[in-house]
Design a protein around this nucleic acid. Sequence first.
RNA 1: GCCGACUUAGCUCAGUGGUAGAGCACUCGCUUCACACGCGAUAGGUCAGAAGUUCAAAUCUUCUAGUCGGCACCA
Length: 907
Amino acid sequence: MEIAKAYDPKTAEESHYQRWEANGCFAPEINEDPAAPTYSIVIPPPNVTGSLHMGHALQHTIMDVLTRWKRMQGYRTLWLPGTDHAGISVQRKVVEQLKKDEGKSPLDIGREEFVRRAWAWKEQYGNTINEQMRREGASVDWSRHRFTMDESLSLAVRNVFCTLYSEGWIYRGLRIVNWCPRDKTVLSDLEVKEENKKDGKLVYLKYPVKGTDRTITVATTRPETMLGDTAVAVNPSDERYSDLIGRTVELPLTGREIPIIADEYVDAEFGTGAVKITPAHDPNDYLVGERHGLEQLLVMNEDGTMNAAAGKDFDGIDRFAARTMVIERFEELGLLEKIDDYEVSLPICERCKTVVEPILSKQWFVKMDEMRDIALELMRAEGVPHFHPQVPHEKVYTAWLENLKDWTISRQLWWGHQIPAWYDDEGNVFVARTEAEAKEKAGRKELKQDQDVLDTWFSSGLWAFSTFGWTGEATDQLTANSSQLTAETKTDLETFLPTDVLVTGRDIIFLWVSRMIMLTKKFTGKKAFEDVVVTGTVLAKDGKPMSKGRGNGVDPIEMFDKFGVDATRVYLASIATGADIRWNDSGIETYRNFANKIWNATRFCLMNSENAAVDHASLMDRSALSLPDRWIISRLNQTAMDVNRSLSRYEFHTAVSLLYHFVWDDFCDWYIELKKDEINSGDVDATSRILTILEIALRMLHPFMPYLTEELWLKLPGTSSQMHAKVYQNAEATIMLAAFPPGDASAVDQDAEAEMQLVIDTIRRVRNIRTEMNIKPSDRVAVHVAAAAEQQAILAANEAQVLKLARADKLVLAETLDVPKATAKAVITNAEIAVPLEGLIDFDKERERLQNQINKLDVELQRLNGQLSNEDFVNKAPAEKVEALRSRKAEIEQQTATLKTNLEALN
RNA sequence: GCCGACUUAGCUCAGUGGUAGAGCACUCGCUUCACACGCGAUAGGUCAGAAGUUCAAAUCUUCUAGUCGGCACCA
């Protein structure tokens, strides 16, 4: 069979995905047994404006590994893909496009037209990440792809809103919220990030106290808000100001007169001990205002400019320009006391980096206290979700829940789920799924729908169940009597919820994961998922998070082009420990090389495969198996068991490491080398066996390296759909439906492993002698081994292999050595190795070699002696530990004695 | 301010009580008929520092230092 000398990932990547998809291999229905156990994962829906970044690639790799592994195990498997509608991001893109192409604003074209264009934008650009996922090899069921604004998911949103409203969990109220003046919308606390600014200023303003010649000084980082001050507060016990309480100040620049009040909120120690109170522009001031019945004076517009209430001079001025103006005016009036440098932390809009303005606004909120209890109860009673790694995520999650504040869910956007609330002329609100129902409730009056839409995370919070068809309508097949349903009649909702695992980054545990847990439980009574795998962050080479701003990102698509999809996937899996990790090109090269190694190992097996074929029976007849066969079968089964265990614990890096070492070290470096002569000589049985070992290895590798393994598996003679797991018997042959090797404990053969160790050690010591004594690779040597009869027999049975790999032409086995003085020697467990080097040996060098071996053993001997002479150790340590050290000590002493004898013999 | 994580070979990282590991880089030798994206052989760590628990600590506890993260506050 002709097969290229090096693996070219492109070929494999282009040929298999389409066929898998077309054959329905990704859909759970490929599984012929409707009663098979299920395994389901919903994807954290990427932003529809987004393209694939390294975080996606990492998480998708993990999800695909799990999905393919479970599918191969015969589970009825579903990995459900989809995207979210990304309210703010899409809105911004469409606004920009509109301005650029037509010079128009959204208001110019109206809401209906704007939404139409947003859909058009989504249709045109929203598919990028889906195509990239195909390239990744993601085995998602595209027939179940969901979008948060799909009709069914939107119906679910409306029903959830109505239910929560009718139960009093959703309310509309006037609160201080986070306002982004650039996006002109409110944001939830989680969408605002604090940023420390060292170059901030603390401005001290003097307010004249009415009826006196005194002033009272307040300090502020936002001087422009003084235009909205409605009081000055001091601590009631602050004697400096006690005589001023109850008086008023004449608020400069405004002509307004505001009271001086006393409130415990004020810290007399901080600043001047007097605080300006702006109830409409600061959350703490808002509370003070509530306590004292102060006016809430809003002085800012939604775009961050000051409004008419700020005064004629400031009306329409941007907030930062107004800040400068206020300072200047105070200076002119002689009322600016001083300006101090001050480190401030500014709230920043997570998406657009604009400084967020705390502002009084009427918004919709979800009350979180009862919601929180749902999640805490799940964690308390069942420990759900199980976080992997548990530390630190479980603790952070729980702590966050305990301090949860209400969630602002309205957004001043047009793209999204418009809030299903209608108002009559008097401002009465009617919440209903449809306008018709609202009118019904209102007595058929003319109503106007709320202009706001819901937070995108509100709809993604339903993702775990709305994606499976839950709409909140009476027609939903829900859980109550699902036990009466047969497997065939169960809906997706009954079949796949709860999902098995959620794989995500830590940045959206609060934003999304926690809300999904609460909402899923509330509306379906089920858990959203049992486990949450929290991946670390893939950092750039500089140790910082990858970001467009820094320009330090690594594009997964470029990595696919450069190293191949499979290599990238295995590399990502190898770093999936839960900890953050720096991107490292040499790491990914390792797995490019690994892919090539697998390719070439297969190439070798296929070069001589005439008449041979994959044949699982060929491994069963123990009497026909040689030592290397028994050994590799033992290693194979041990590896399979360990890989399964690692995957079940989400220890992806361990699984990769096990597979890497099995394939490269055990299979390629030893097994292939040991069997080479047999294979090359056309031994059909030997070739069938090696093909079979390889075939099983490819299956284990498949979840990590889907393209390479499929490409090679299909080339192996004898592979067919007969090798599929039994629930996929009628599908077209593909490795992705082959049974995942479970590993067989009874095939693990400790004797074979010990015997092989003797062969390996013998070969290694001879190679070592050759290198250190500068023997040319082309020169053959004689190998003498002194050992007991049992060891002699093992080596005798593998003489050809030892000779070949040690590049020797003679193997002499005896109880004791009979060699000339000019001989290099070494000791291994249960044997002594000697290589006569007449005329070639450098006696000084051989002395040095022997002395080095003695020295190394001596270091270990010292330590063993130390431990064994410690009575506490001997008395208290487990007996088998003590015994192990004793026997190791005896061995070392014996080996040292031999080496010393040999050293003396050279003199 | 509170909470947490991390600190192991030159680099990037595994390793949750019993002889310190990997990949890459480095050194030496190989056009050995699957693979130079390779083969063979070496070298390289008082596991951040200190104290404690234990027969035994990279691993458990406490403290210190440094790095990073989350939360809170911020007139």
